[in-house]
Amino acid sequence: MTSCHIAEEHIQKVAIFGGTHGNELTGVFLVKHWLENGAEIQRTGLEVKPFITNPRAVKKCTRYIDCDLNRIFDLENLGKKMSEDLPYEVRRAQEINHLFGPKDSEDSYDIIFDLHNTTSNMGCTLILEDSRNNFLIQMFHYIKTSLAPLPCYVYLIEHPSLKYATTRSIAKYPVGIEVGPQPQGVLRADILDQMRKMIKHALDFIHHFNEGKEFPPCAIEVYKIIEKVDYPRDENGEIAAIIHPNLQDQDWKPLHPGDPMFLTLDGKTIPLGGDCTVYPVFVNEAAYYEKKEAFAKTTKLTLNAKSIRCCLH
């Protein structure tokens, strides 16, 4: 018999989150649709729960009410004593943790798909938090293969000092899905179709896995975050240069030392320094102006996964 890495157990509980950011409308629209008619997301033997994560922000069509829901799922915020004085999103995070967690427990949901849009030209993107997770690498390989020839990129946010504390991190297997470009507060049919297909293929993978299909060893190309880059700023902290036209919409493309990065209003080009080629992502993302992030630098690498098969009882 072929030796293989056996994944822990079959997958039982899956959640699909929309509206973690209330103005990213593809996930909101799909989740609302699936709450009314969820036939397309159901798979035999699998509990799939669509869920609106930040209903107040969705109602106002804004990213958040008090603070970013997708950055506060750490033990400090989840452990705060519940009171009306807490920011709305912290209270909501505790409610979500109660419903789908608790985080880092045996009772937490197996998989959470968190649906997002970006204003950046990132196409279909899967966000991975753990480079050693054979199950998710296999799932992402399946999704990428199923979507081809449509490109699907994998963004690895594993980093020693950049801690995200994402909404989906309460699950055993957290999956971020990011599709763009799409303006905030807008629905685009092409973007919706791409996100819908990503979810379909992900659920198909889980179904095949649960039925005992063995997935042979595989490898995927990923883009691992190195650092986030702020806009150049003046002495008052105001933005002093904008994304250069040569960099705009060039997510995932190589940016070499000396290539144009920013452009000042008086026409001066600010190039990339250093001696390493990087791959920019979230270029000129609207939501990241407040976070002082013009783009993120990534490096390209390959992740390998062992063969996996479900432990059938």
Rank of each mutant, 00 (worst) to 15 (best):
K13R: 10
G18S: 05
N23W: 00
L25W: 10
L30Q: 03
K32M: 08
H33F: 08
G38C: 13
E40W: 03
K49V: 13
P50K: 00
K59H: 14
K60A: 15
C61W: 08
T62C: 13
I65F: 15
D68I: 03
N70W: 05
N70K: 14
R71Y: 10
I72E: 07
L75E: 10
G79T: 13
K80Y: 14
M82S: 09
Q94H: 11
N97F: 08
E106T: 08
D107E: 12
S108R: 08
Y109P: 07
D110L: 00
I112C: 09
F113L: 09
L115R: 02
H116N: 07
N121H: 11
G123D: 03
E129Q: 15
F135W: 05
L136G: 02
Q138L: 00
Q138A: 03
Y142H: 07
T145R: 12
A148C: 09
A148Y: 11
P149K: 04
Y153M: 12
Y164P: 09
A165V: 09
A165N: 12
I170P: 15
I170A: 06
A171F: 04
K172S: 06
K172L: 04
P174Y: 10
P174N: 13
G176T: 15
V186I: 13
I191N: 03
L192N: 04
R196T: 04
M198A: 09
I199Y: 01
A202R: 02
L203F: 06
D204R: 00
F205D: 00
G212K: 05
K213W: 09
F215Y: 15
F215A: 02
P216K: 15
P217Y: 04
V222Y: 03
R233W: 04
N236H: 15
H244D: 03
P245F: 02
N246V: 08
N246Y: 08
Q248T: 06
D251K: 01
P257V: 08
M261P: 02
L263Y: 11
G267K: 08
P271K: 07
L272I: 09
G273W: 05
D275E: 13
C276E: 13
T277P: 13
P280G: 03
V281P: 00
V283S: 02
Y288R: 07
K291Y: 09
A294W: 01
A294D: 00
F295N: 01
L301C: 09
T302C: 06
L303R: 02
